[in-house]
Design a protein around this nucleic acid. Structure first.
Length: 765
DNA sequence: CGGATCGAC
DNA sequence: CTATGTCGATCCG
């Protein structure tokens, strides 16, 4: 194995990444129910590393035949910055450092990795060599290199005639502005389950404890690896056969979506208890489920109400999680989501970390933080920043002039906010109105027979129709997504005059788009609908409800410190008087295509003028209709809603800012009459009650949908459907006991009664 | 608006 | 001889 190279790369700041790799469960549920036999989990102690023509695998196996006792030691964390430059020019065909990292997978940087990450990485690269996947990665890598080249050139020419001190001064001005927006009033915790899938497996089969094993859907890749497996270099996202090469004794278990979903539910329910106003009246409103195994919780109110400190509160949360699920969680406590997330990894396995709320301490914390730790900064961005010598957040300040010069590409303002440790303090449930698209896609063995491709299109279309139906959306634009067998991706879209959602309409458009592309050799085909129309948007009945002057009055008052970003916080408050009481439909009423949907993307002013002298330009604020927004925002969760949203705190300089209103403080009018937008029933309850009901109602329809597809499409589809739910419906009631016991009428359906049942379900599993 | 890319889980 | 699916954001033309 090469060595000279090592010096250049060896200390890969391996720390971080995502614990779990997202997987779908589509494949694993193919064969009926998830593995859950009385017997041992479906382990596949496969054949020893098949010595392929490439004895690379064998080489890897050799290299790691005797890893530094897996359990014995935590990974040696050699803190050092990534170094992408290829200093190993001495060797014949050296693989590009960036490419190596790409091949290493998305989660390189995770905690608990083996020591010499570099060796593993390059061996993996060798093993991958020649595959289409490899070639594609190489191509992409080269594109990035090219972009960097251009960037550096631009920087140099610009710098030649730039007034550096002035650029720095303007950056400092922005810093001052941003600093003024700092909000330390909220205590936010990010709770992250420890190797979730793996831990769940250990619970089912205790004999797995301390053994190196991985959890994967099928033959492909591992979604997660146990800590002892990580000591061998195995990590999430890694191809199973490579993992086996690294760790011959690796055990591979399949995902058990039922359990994962139940466990997730149990955990989220616990968290919801801590996420509410001080009086506890709005339990769950201060929570943001960010995936099956993680969530943000605003514990400000809870701590105040119970007169306890944040750390104690979080200890309590974690203890409760463990007590009720026997699963451990890690957590980060900080004044905003970004920081909380970063902190939750700090003491990863079963630990917590509380960041100081002192601005200077926060800045010091950021100063040494590798840029890659920032949510939103991935492989490519890390590479770009590295090119301009920015590796830690502290480097952002040092090179602020460069960022100013390359603002168009590197976003100075956004980076400065990161440098300051600013982030969103908005913690609330995902609102269905913020959904932008609904889609379905499928990967398969490359095919080129038009008839076969057509079949795939039909399959995907059927799936999409089902999702649209279940979710209650239709869309104006249909996009066909293709991935060639070379991994090259492509997409084609077409907008219809009317929002579409039916199978026939979708298929027709899909076929049209597809026809134009054939012939093809495909490995993936997907269909997606955007420019959504919410079919469950408030109808006249509901509209009246929200038109209620009292509700409207809340609007302007409750404008909270918008997150970072907002060049001019001052007048942001004026021109508030627009309470879109009625009609959310004007939403797609299509008028100003600009105003709404495009609000974020199309600022009223040229987005390019954000460079140096960015003068705060008061823009006409873009208002989101609030009607149903508040309604749903207060809802505790979203069935089948997906996660992830603006990772980075800032947006352009346009203030389209997330009109994130604080929806809480509500009129807790106890008895009011509302009409459920889903089932149309009239309810006698307060807002919370209504929301709870809608919640239940939505999840119920999701379940019905699942059963329906079960009877119409056969068992495999049903299983898939359920799997999809477990994964997507982070907040939705799961099927099974939990779901069937949830009480619709109860104004607290999601809290008391139902919860106990759900937990019971988890324990029973 | 359509297309491509990045990032996240 | 591996590498999903689903979604949001952003940038470009």
């Amino acid at each position: 194995m090469p060595s000279s190279v090592d010096s250049a790369l060896s200390k890969g700041d391996i720390l971080e990444g995502s614990e779990e790799i997202a997987t779908t469960g589509h494949e694993n549920s193919d064969k009926g129910a998830p593995v859950d036999e009385p017997t041992a989990p479906s382990v596949s102690l496969n054949d020893p590393p098949r010595s392929s023509s490439k004895d690379i695998v064998a080489a890897i196996a050799n290299h790691y035949a005797s890893p530094s006792k897996p359990g014995s030691t935590g990974p040696t964390i050699t803190a050092s910055r990534p170094n992408f430059r290829n200093k190993n020019s001495g060797e014949g065909k050296e693989l590009d450092a960036h490419l190596l990292r790409r091949l290493a997978g998305p989660s390189v940087g995770k905690a608990g990795l083996a020591r010499d990450q570099t060796e593993i990485t390059r061996l993996i690269a060798r093993a991958s060599e020649g595959s289409k996947y490899y070639e594609n990665e190489k191509r992409k890598s080269e594109e990035v290199e090219k972009k960097i080249e251009g960037l550096l050139k631009l920087r140099d020419t610009q710098r030649a005639m730039a007034d550096i001190p002035r650029l720095e001064a303007s950056a400092d001005k922005i810093i001052a502005e941003l600093e003024a927006t700092r909000d330390l009033s909220q205590t936010i915790v990010h709770v992250d389950m420890d190797s979730f899938y793996a831990s769940i497996e250990v619970l089912r089969d205790p004999s797995l404890a301390n053994k190196p094993f991985g959890v994967g859907s099928n033959n492909g890749v591992l979604s997660t690896a146990s800590y002892s497996a990580r000591a061998f270099g195995v990590r999430s996202g890694m191809a199973t056969y490579i993992a086996k090469a690294l760790c011959p004794s690796l055990i591979v278990v399949h995902m058990d979506w039922e359990r994962i979903g139940a466990a997730s539910e149990a955990v989220m329910d616990i968290l919801r208890e801590y996420a509410g106003d001080p009086d506890g009246s709005m339990e769950g409103t201060g929570m943001d489920v960010a995936g099956v195994d993680e969530a943000y919780v605003n514990i400000t109110g809870y701590c105040k109400a119970h007169e306890i400190g944040a750390e104690e509160c979080v200890e309590r949360i974690r203890a409760q999680i463990f007590e009720e699920t026997k699963l451990t969680a890690s957590a980060g406590i900080a004044p905003n989501k970004m920081l909380a997330k970063i902190c939750s990894e700090r003491n990863k396995p079963n630990g917590q970390y509380a960041l100081s709320f002192d601005p200077d301490a926060i800045k010091e914390f950021m100063r040494v933080l590798p840029i890659r730790r920032i949510p939103g900064i991935g492989r490519v961005t890390e590479r770009l920043l590295d090119a301009v010598e920015i590796r830690t957040c502290g480097d952002i300040y040092t090179h602020r002039a460069t960022l100013a010069l390359l603002d168009k590409h590197l976003h100075l303002r956004e980076k400065l906010a990161v440098y300051l440790g600013l982030g969103s303090t908005q913690v609330k449930p995902w609102a269905r109105e913020s959904r932008k698209s609904v889609g379905a896609e499928r990967t398969f063995r490359a095919i080129e027979d038009p008839a076969k491709i057509q079949e795939k299109l039909e399959l995907v279309t059927r799936e999409l129709e089902g999702d649209l139906e279940r979710l209650g959306f239709a869309g104006h634009t249909v996009t066909l997504k293709l991935k060639l067998d070379t991994f090259e991706a492509r997409s084609r879209a077409k907008s219809a005059r009317k929002p579409v959602r039916k199978y026939d309409e979708l298929l027709a458009i899909g076929q049209e788009l597809l026809a134009h592309e054939l012939p093809l050799r495909l490995r993936l085909l997907g269909l997606r609908v955007t420019n959504l129309k919410d079919l469950r948007a408030p109808e006249t009945g509901i509209k009246r409800f929200f038109g209620n002057p009292q509700e409207a009055a809340i609007r302007p008052a409750k404008r909270r410190k918008l997150d970072v970003e907002n060049s001019d916080g001052k007048d942001a408050m004026k021109e508030e008087p627009i309470y879109i009481l009625d009609d959310e439909s004007e939403d797609d009423a299509d008028e100003q295509p600009q105003t709404k949907r495009a609000a974020t993307a199309t600022p009223e002013k040229p987005r390019t003028q954000s460079l140096p002298d960015v003068e705060a330009v008061p823009r006409a604020s873009s208002h989101e209709p609030m009607g149903s927004q508040e309604f749903f925002a207060a809802t505790s969760n979203q069935p089948l809603g997906k996660r992830k949203r603006q990772p980075s705190p800032s947006h352009r300089d346009d203030d389209s800012d997330d009109i994130e209103e604080v929806v809480r403080h509500k009129s807790d009018k106890s008895s009011e009459q509302h009409i459920c937008p889903i089932c149309s029933k009239t309810l006698q309850t307060d807002n919370a009650g209504l929301n709870a009901h809608v919640d239940w109602c939505l999840s119920r329809s999701a379940i019905l949908e699942a059963s329906a597809s079960a009877s119409t499409s056969g068992p495999s589809d049903a299983a898939k459907s359920l799997a999809a739910q477990s994964k997507k419906a982070t907040g939705a009631k799961k099927t099974g006991p939990a779901a069937t016991t949830a009480k619709p009428g109860s104004s607290k359906g999601s809290t008391k009664g139902g919860k106990a049942d759900i937990r019971l379900a988890w324990k029973v599993l």
